[in-house]
Amino acid sequence: MNYAYNVSHLLAGLMLVASFALLYQDRIFAVLNTFAAQAMLLAMSVGWEGWSQGRPNLYITAAIALILKGIVIPVALHRMIVRLGIHRDVEQVLNVGKTLLIGLALTALSLLLVLKVTAAAQNFTREGLALALAIILLGLLMMITRRNAVTQIVGFMSLENGLILAATGARGMPLVVEVSVAFSVLIALFVFAVFVFRIRERFDSVDIDALEQVRGDRK
């Protein structure tokens, strides 16, 4: 284990901590701030990978993560929330204790799974991959436990952070994919924005519970 691995593990570990923080934040602004912090950690991590692997094109991915996910999107969501007047508490389906326990179990699962499966492989950071998978699973968990459209968006973007961490940790994975991921995040955001505005128009709220009432077969 050398110095380069240690730094990337440190950054990935901090991102995982941010994922856990996202799980229990119940104020919507705190959720956005935590997400912005995670995105900035991602930018640092990708930048570090770019330097240690000698792949300057990763700096582009890092810049996208920093500017778009670390600054532009949180600010935009922040403004939208103020305009919609929904900066109240975030409701959760499960309580915080249970959610965190499930989060711990998912983290343990991904560590055990990835470290076991990649036991023979040496040419990439196995721990980095395991941490990335844990971040992805925690993002999924957040999307399930939150009932508010904005926090579900944040859950999805935190999941994407995990994906980009995994993609950049894989040594030499062609740039084509990283650009496409950034691109897809843009499109996803566009779609999300459209939805949030439409939901607002229809229900005067971005609470998914308002949607749940119209689900299922029309009787």
Binding site: I199, I208, L211, E212
Partner: peptide, 19 residues
């Protein structure tokens, strides 16, 4: 409302699948 609910569900499950 039904169309937006359907699209939202499709979007959430679709993005999980995509990821």
């Amino acid at each position: 409302p039904a169309a937006i609910e359907a699209a939202w569900k499709y979007f959430i499950l679709g993005s999980v699948g995509i990821s």
